[in-house]
């Protein structure tokens, strides 16, 4: 099972908590898929409605690890301040660091991301950076003190799967000892299985489960897929080849023509 900053996680399926039809359905999905880590966020609270308090109680009752995010932040300052607020509220040093650079793709601004990661690491945070598949950026994030790298599969919420498999494979090969998580863009269990088959340590997704017709059933499907993908990677997949190769032995075949 993956280990992030010394903490072992029981399920490589990390699940977002947004966009579910109801809090009860979210809780059902987390329980049925035996998810161990969920991502959460911070938003403005109303002193009258106190919606966030009910949500926090729901998450606490699930007895899972929380990974707060800095979703929606567009600058180093915004992300760093949000991380500090999250650390106090959620009582964890883990932070999923998002610094968004562009609205159409929600692509990370990798320059600000690296700078924010450096500042937060120096301040004792354990940073999970949401980044692209760029190898040089991954190296800069490691230099900044990150011990986990989370490249995107495809843009957030797109469900397109792993759009740049070659780069993800390269990252895995280049960083054999760094926990790697495919974060964002996964739409189907087969995408999640593919990431695990490449040797990734975990996947992080939200929309694919939350927007499914039956989120709990889909969460279970994803949980099975990551387990299968991980087992396949551990088992050592065959190398693909261009031409057919008979699987049944040719030796000893009867001469019948």
């Amino acid at each position: 099972m993956p280990t992030f900053y010394g903490t072992e996680v029981k399920n490589p399926l990390l699940l977002g908590t947004a966009q579910y039809p109801s809090p009860a359905i979210l809780a059902d999905a987390v329980r049925q898929a035996e998810v161990d880590v969920v991502t959460v966020s911070l938003r403005r609270e109303s002193g009258q409605e106190k919606a966030g308090q009910d949500f926090w109680k729901l998450i606490q009752d699930l007895e899972v690890k929380v990974l707060p995010n800095t979703a929606g932040c567009h600058s180093v300052k915004e992300a760093v301040t949000t991380a500090h607020m999250a650390r106090e509220v959620f009582n964890t040093s883990w932070i999923k660091l998002e610094v968004i650079g562009e609205e159409d793709t929600l692509q990370p601004n990798i320059f600000e991301l690296v700078e924010a990661a450096r500042i937060l690491t120096e301040d004792g945070f354990q940073v999970f950076p949401y980044t692209t598949e760029d190898l040089i950026v991954a190296g800069k994030l490691l230099d900044a003190g990150c011990e986990v790298i989370m490249p995107w599969g495809a843009p957030i919420g797109s469900g397109r799967g792993l759009e740049n498999v070659t780069a993800l494979k390269t990252m895995r090969a280049h960083l054999p000892d760094v926990p790697l998580v495919v974060d964002a863009g996964i739409g189907l269990p087969s995408h999640a299985a593919e990431a695990m088959e490449l040797g990734f340590d975990a996947v992080l997704l939200n929309t694919a489960v939350a927007k499914a017709g039956d989120p709990a059933q889909m969460a279970k499907a994803f949980s099975s897929a990551v387990a299968a993908g991980k087992a396949a990677f551990n088992a050592g997949p065959m190398e693909p080849r261009d031409m057919a190769a008979p699987s049944t032995p040719v030796m000893g075949k009867a001469f019948l023509s």
Partner: peptide, 25 residues
């Protein structure tokens, strides 16, 4: 931080943000 709230005085025109746990991906 919580520990600083009682010693933090506000002035007219100041802006506060009050955030709570919320759903996130």
């Amino acid at each position: 931080p919580v520990s600083m709230r009682e010693n933090t005085s506000l002035n007219p025109g100041d802006s506060i943000e009050v955030l709570a746990p919320m759903q996130g991906g």
